[in-house]
């Protein structure tokens, strides 16, 4: 499991890096989305992996060692929602820049080559 998660994070992050180094705005936005998945899972994994132990405590007296770490979960939940908002912002900037400059290059102009 640990190895699978590590490889998954690596693959998503590598795809993200590749994409954010590309020249087109759409590639950038897709890259950022992939990177945010990778980073979210990475942060989430800092609480270690737990199967069938959700942090839901119906009884008052519990052994904390029997539950998944709720803190990274809370942080990642926030990160997912903020990630959605920033994606929306990038998107609007992307189409706005395209309308203004006539180009979908990340610098707003086609490279001089």
């Amino acid at each position: 499991m640990e190895m699978v998660i590590a490889i998954a994070v690596g693959v998503m992050f590598a795809s993200g890096i590749w994409l954010i180094l590309r020249p087109r705005t759409f590639q950038l936005i897709i890259g950022l989305m992939l990177m945010s998945y990778a980073v979210n899972i990475f942060i989430f994994a800092m609480g270690r992996l737990w199967v069938d132990k959700p942090p839901i405590t119906p009884l008052p007296d519990i052994d904390p060692a029997q539950f998944a770490d709720p803190l990274p979960q809370g942080l990642v939940l926030t990160a997912i929602v903020i990630g959605f908002a920033t994606t929306a912002l990038y998107l609007v900037m992307m189409i706005g820049a395209r309308g203004l400059t006539g180009s979908d290059h990340v610098d707003g102009e086609e490279p001089r080559e």
Partner: peptide, 20 residues
């Protein structure tokens, strides 16, 4: 870019595994 991407992916994969 591919080199940088692969290196970055490997690095974060190694880091994740090391932590886990």
């Amino acid at each position: 870019d591919l080199l940088v991407a692969v290196a970055g992916g490997l690095a974060i994969a190694a880091l994740t595994y090391a932590v886990l």
